[in-house]
Structures are given as C-alpha cells and as structure tokens.
Design a protein around this nucleic acid. Structure first.
Lengths: 334, 334
DNA sequence: CTGAAAGCGCTTACAG
DNA sequence: CTGAAAGCGCTTACAG
C-alpha cells in the first residue's frame, strides 16, 4: 500500500501544510505536531512521492547518463563500466539518482527521452554526433561530455590526455631499445584513438625514428576480436619485418592481438613487447600482465558528476576542457 | 527554453484539452486542430513533461535496477555488466527507462529511493539480504530477483542452473581422465557459488570419485585477486598433491588462479586443466582460452525485463523460479 | 506556529 | 469534435 500526504496529515491530526513542513524539513512546526507526524510516517512507512515533489520543485534530482556506442559491449565495456561505477557512486553521494541509457543508433532520441523526463543534467559518454550536442544545447539543460570529441568551444568535456600518453608510450618503448614499431590503432574518428596514435607517431618522430620503422594498421572497431583478427592477418609482416613492439590504442586491441602472438609461440616480452592503453582490469590479470597507459576513469567519473552538479547549481565552471593526465604502468609484457 | 502544454495550446489556438489529445494521441481531434497543434509542437520542439504525465498516470515508465555488491567491480563486473546491457536493451524495447543504483551497504535505502521515485517495477540483482525483499514486499510494487538467492516461495527469481552446471563440469573433466580435483570456490553465502560447488561435488561422487581426491579451498571474494592469492598460497599442495584439475566457481577466480599457474611455468592444459564458470568476455580472450560453463546473461536480462513487464501489467506469471540451462564451452585450458 | 489556497504540467471524464 | 473543470501529490507564499 502506498499513502499520500493527505492521509498522513489527517491521521496525525494536522493539515497537509504542516505535514509537508515536517516531512520535507522546510518551515516551522511545533514539537508536538512534528512528533505526531513523524510517528505516523514511521508507522505507515510513508514514502513521499518524488514525482510530485519534482513537479513543484521543477527539479527531479535525477541525472541522465547516455553511452553512445554502436556495438556491444557498452555497459559491459571494461572502460565504460568503470566510468559508470564511478558516476553512480559520485551521484549517490550528491543525492542524485541516475537514468542510464545506451544509444546504438547514435541518434537524438535518447537525449529526447532524458529531456522529457526532465533530468537535472546530462552526461554524454563516448563518441557522439555533433547534432546530438546541438540538439541538447537548444534546451537549457546542463550537460557535459566524457571521453568524446568535439570542436565546439562551448562544450564542457572531460578527456584523458591521450596525445601525451601516446608520446610517453613511444618514449618508454624507445628507451627500452626498440627500433621498429608496429601499431594497431582503433577507429580514427574517435578522438582517443586518433590522438593516441598521433601522440605515439610524434613521440617517435621526435626521437628520430624514421617513418619507415613504423607500421600502422587501422582497426574498424576497438575490441578483442579485431585485435586478434588484425594481428593474425599481419603476422608474417610483423615477424618477418623485424618489429619488436606492438603498441595499440587500447587494451582490448592489445589483449586480442597478444593472444595471437602467444598462440603462435611468440615470447612476450622477449621477442615482442606489447603495450596497450586504458588499464582495464584484465590488463593486469593477463599473463603476461599488460604494460599500458592508465586512464583514471574513477576520477573522471567523480569529476564529471561534481562538475555537472556545479552546472546544475549555476556555479561558475572554470574550464571547458578538463584533461586527465595519463600515466605509464609498466608490467610484464614489455 | 522549455514550453508547457498551455503555451502550445494557445499558440495553436485550441484548448489545453485538445492539445493534450493530439499530443498524447488519446481522444478525438479534428484534422485541422491536429495539424495546427502538431505544427507548433514541431516548431517549438516541444517535449511533453514526463513528470507531469507520470503524476496523473500513476505510472512513470521507469524501472529500477539495483545491484547489490559490497565490492567493486559492480557495474564493471564482467557478468553484471552484460546483464545490465541486456536489461537496458530490453527495457528500451518495451518503452521503459531505467534508474540504476548500486548498493554496497546491502541496505534497504536504495530500495527506498526507488520506491520514492515511484518506479513501475524493480529488478534486484545479486546477493541481497532477506530484509530487503521483505521491505519491498510491503509496498505493492512489482519486483523480481536476478542471480540472487532466496528461500521465500513468493519471490519471482531468475537464476542459472548452477547445480547442473557444476555436475556437468565434473562429468566433463572426469571424462577427460582426470582423477584428482582442486577447487577454489567463491563465497558460499552466495547461491551461485554454493550450488556450483555442490553440483561439482555431487557430480564427482556419482562418478565414484572418493572425497579424498577432491580438495576445496574457499575464497572470501570472487575476484581475480583472490583467485591469484589462493592459488599462490596453495601452490605446493596443488603441484605436490597430484592434482591435474583446477575448477573454480567463476571465471574471475579461474583467470586469477591460472595466471599464477602460468607464471610458475605450469603448462595449461598439459599439466593442469583449468575450468571456470560464467563465460565472461575475457574467458575466451585469455591465452589459453578458458573452458567454462556458460550462463546466458543476455537471455536472462531480456527475460527479467519481459517478466517484470508482465508483472507490471498484472498478467499472470507462470512460475516463480526461472532457471536457465548452463552449457559447457570447451576451449583451450582443458 | 498553522491551515486554506493556489499552483507545478499534465490527462480525463463530462457536458455541450 | 471541443473546452471547462477537477484532480494527480506535493510545496510554498500568505494571512491569521
């Protein structure tokens, strides 16, 4: 059974107004009135209707999170899963509930759903079309973007410093003595994959590595399967070409590709060093454990919610672009 | 800017009632009125306020999903992540949005949040205390449990057939010629881990394997780290004891433990066969790929939402206990 | 300190 | 086919 405030009020012998004041904690009520109302609330296990509250407050205390991604895994993507865990935790801490949606059509529909549900703010995750942002902008709903890409100077976004991470990876591997580099890079329309590759290339160039000592293979998707497929496809080139490094623009690609190497009895890291990017849980769990560039998804998720909260409260927000430092994690594969 | 129906109505030159009828699609409206309203809606990009709608419909079209788990990973748990992906997809298909919450305190608070927000139904995931179910039961909110455990005959729940899976694993490994079995089992308060172990034991017993040829080590948590820690701790026993099989009650434990075996140069499967349970994405990606018992999380998630939808529509629901067959996936580690 | 009234943005009988 | 009215469950000035 579910009661409403009118019933609570009448059982407590007060008016709705008074009942509302004690339940919501706003406004005065005599100690006696307060006690009677609270007793009824307790006894009936009254749960105030948040929908009605939202109606008058013009605030739902819900935030919307949309993950744009064409293929599974989405929530079960090791990186996005961690990001969502962090977002849920942070949201809880600030009193928000989260409406979560995945959008495989990369359309404007999911944003419309959130708009209709009157979320207080919106977190847009991963690669999304420009028109989605343009659409959201028309409503004055606070929003921000995580791990996506945009050239729109208005959009507040959180990203990892992918270019720097790529360059660091190049420097680290070069420092180990490697001279011929093989790269499998994810979709270049995606900011992260693009910048990680660019950073890596530039890093190499700065170290004086000629372009002829670098081979880049582009992958249409950034998952385990494509990593494995491309490594298998280019196996002869890799082995015959004197390459001693496999760098990939994320861990899934690295792990997929490394499996092929191991299956074909290539010793990692003795014959070939393998390095990824992200630091998903399985990077450390693999054997050999994968050297990678860590993205601090936990902090990113927490900061995203904190920032959105500032936006919701109309507080000033310092900078549009929020970059998170990337850090090399040396493990067994290099 | 965001408009309300009154503004739409007045711009279209009709009453709120008429505007409402055409926008909601319920009730009559002349073609002319309809056209005028729709034009204004389109031009102003009007988004009806779902909060107000929910208020009168006494239905939010939101469902709540709570994952009960004391430790990270929660959403980023490979199994729960997949389950949530399936739930989101199925919910979307039936017109629901989902409010997602993780509960690490195993309390009743998260359920209360959902109750206050007036979700149409609730999906409770993983291990949860009896008092949570008892609490939810008091409100007449449709709910069901996925991958949890209960001895309450009223509770509609979806589980994998863990006992059968365990027995199948035993039979398969025994059939391969193995005679001494080492098991790392997750928390026995958790239904799945408990039944998987029971099924495995009983399977072995039926095959005439004496209890002395089975060693079981209990793990306080079911993650990679504990799998690795326990294997390292019992390594001497394992190697010195003539065991040729490592079976674990989930893939994370298996992968964590297998890494230790590989690091110490134990050849898998030649010297030791390793087998897990769940079929998370990384089971197939590991090298050697992990043989496991597959739980069809995708179907489980879809069925959970479909079932909840039936409950919400007060349709009859066939059986309280919905069991999903488990299936052995033979890969490289056995 | 308290209660009556108005209002949040919709929908739904009901009368015309 | 259409509009005025009432109501969903709250909160918030306002008068007393």
């Amino acid at each position: 059974m579910t009661y409403n405030i009118k019933e609570i009020a009448s059982l407590a012998g007060v008016s709705k107004s008074t009942a509302s004041r004690v339940i919501s904690g706003n406004g005065y009520a005599s100690p006696e009135a307060r006690a009677r109302v609270l007793e009824v609330v307790e006894q009936l296990q009254y749960k105030p209707n948040a929908v009605a509250r939202a109606m008058v407050a013009k605030r739902t205390n819900n935030i919307g999170v949309i993950v744009f991604r064409e293929q599974q895994p989405i929530v079960s993507h090791p990186l996005y899963g961690k990001l969502i865990d962090a977002i849920l935790e942070a949201a809880e801490g600030l009193g928000y509930s989260v409406l979560l949606k995945t959008d495989r059509e990369m359309s404007v529909r999911s944003a419309d759903h959130m708009l209709e549900r009157r979320v207080d703010g919106l977190i847009l995750i991963s690669r999304l079309r420009k028109n989605v942002v343009d659409h959201v902008k028309k409503y004055n709903l606070p929003y921000l973007m995580v791990n996506g890409s945009t050239d729109d100077p208005d959009v507040i976004h959180l990203v990892s410093n992918d270019e720097e991470g790529g360059a660091k990876a190049a420097a680290y591997l070069h420092g180990l003595g490697h001279r011929r580099f093989f790269v499998i890079a994810g979709p270049q329309e995606h900011r992260s994959h693009h910048l990680r590759l660019e950073g890596f290339k530039q890093g190499l160039q700065r170290l004086g590595v000629p372009a002829s000592d670098l081979t880049v293979v582009l992958s249409p998707e950034s998952n385990l399967e494509q990593g494995a497929r491309l490594m298998a496809e280019h196996f002869e080139t890799f082995i015959g070409g004197g390459y001693t490094v496999l760098f990939t623009t994320n861990d899934m690609l690295a792990l997929g590709a490394m499996k092929v190497l191991l299956q074909r009895s290539v010793r990692v890291p003795e014959q070939a060093a393998v390095m990824g990017f992200d630091d998903i849980d399985f990077a450390a769990a693999y054997s050999p454990a994968l050297t990678t560039v860590k993205v601090d998804t936990n902090r990113m998720g927490h900061d995203a919610v904190a920032l959105l909260d500032r936006l919701i409260h109309q507080e000033e927000v310092l900078s549009k672009k929020n970059e998170f430092a990337s850090e090399i994690l040396i493990r067994e594969s290099t």
